[in-house]
Amino acid sequence: MVSYVADTLALVLFFTTTGIVNERIIAGMTWEQVLHARLIGGVLMVPVGRPYGLWRDWLMSHAKQTRLSQLIWDSLALVSFQVPIYTAIIAFSGAAGDSLIRGVLGATVMMMVLGRPYGAFLNWVRHLFGLPPGGEKPMSLNT
C-alpha cells in the first residue's frame, strides 16, 4: 500500500504540472479545456500510478548503470505507458485536429525529455516513504 501511495503521489505531482504546460502552451487548449484535462488526468492517475511504477521498474531492470542507458530506458517506459493515456485525456477534453496532434507530439517529446527526471523524482518520493528505488531488483507486487 505504501508503494501505491508513493508512486501515485509522484505521478500526480509531476504530471499535473507538466500537463498544464503542454496543454496550454504547446497544444493551445483553452484554460477550460486544460482544467477538464487535469481533472480527468487526476482521476486516471490514481489507478495507473502504481502500475506505471511497476512497468518502469521492470523496464529499468534492463538498463545498464550508464547514464545513457538509464535515460533511454526511463524515457521508453514513460512514453510507452503514458502517451496513449494522455492522448485519450486531451481528446476527451476537447482537443481535436491540429490541437490534438500538437498535444500528442508535444507530450511525446516532453515525456522523452522528462523520462529520466521523472524517474529520479519517483525514486526520491519512494525514498521519502522509506522505499527502495525502482529498477534495481525484480518487479514485485508486494513492495
Score class of each variant (00 low, 15 high):
86 Y>K: 05
94 G>V: 10
67 R>Y: 12
66 T>P: 09
80 S>G: 14
43 V>Q: 02
64 K>I: 07
119 G>S: 06
12 V>K: 03
126 R>T: 03
113 V>I: 15
40 I>T: 10
32 E>P: 02
73 W>G: 03
28 G>S: 00
9 L>G: 05
84 P>V: 10
13 L>A: 13
113 V>M: 11
126 R>S: 03
55 W>P: 07
19 G>N: 12
104 V>N: 01
28 G>P: 01
65 Q>A: 13
73 W>R: 09
69 S>P: 11
122 L>T: 04
37 A>H: 06
120 A>Y: 13
23 E>P: 04
126 R>Q: 05
23 E>Y: 11
93 S>H: 02
104 V>T: 08
94 G>D: 07
55 W>Y: 15
40 I>Y: 01
93 S>A: 10
76 L>F: 15
57 D>Y: 04
66 T>F: 06
84 P>W: 04
21 V>Y: 09
77 A>K: 03
101 I>H: 07
29 M>V: 00
74 D>P: 08
73 W>Y: 15
56 R>F: 15
70 Q>T: 13
97 G>Q: 07
39 L>Y: 13
17 T>R: 00
105 L>V: 11
41 G>H: 00
142 N>M: 15
68 L>M: 14
59 L>R: 08
51 P>V: 08
135 G>P: 12
89 I>V: 15
134 G>K: 03
103 G>Y: 01
87 T>Y: 10
18 T>K: 01
42 G>K: 02
17 T>F: 12
6 A>L: 05
41 G>P: 05
77 A>R: 04
22 N>Y: 02
120 A>L: 14
128 L>V: 06
67 R>P: 12
117 P>Y: 04
64 K>N: 09
14 F>H: 07
103 G>S: 01
83 V>A: 05
96 A>E: 15
34 V>N: 01
69 S>F: 11
33 Q>P: 09
48 V>T: 13
39 L>S: 10
14 F>Y: 14
84 P>M: 10
40 I>C: 08
77 A>E: 03
88 A>G: 15
92 F>E: 12
119 G>W: 00
138 P>R: 09
12 V>N: 04
105 L>M: 13
63 A>K: 00
38 R>E: 14
89 I>Q: 00
111 M>P: 01
76 L>N: 05
125 V>I: 12
17 T>Q: 04
134 G>A: 11
79 V>C: 06
4 Y>A: 12
104 V>G: 02
123 N>D: 15
133 P>W: 02
24 R>C: 00
131 L>E: 06
10 A>I: 11
110 M>I: 13
45 M>F: 07
34 V>I: 07
88 A>V: 15
13 L>H: 07
106 G>Y: 02
16 T>H: 09
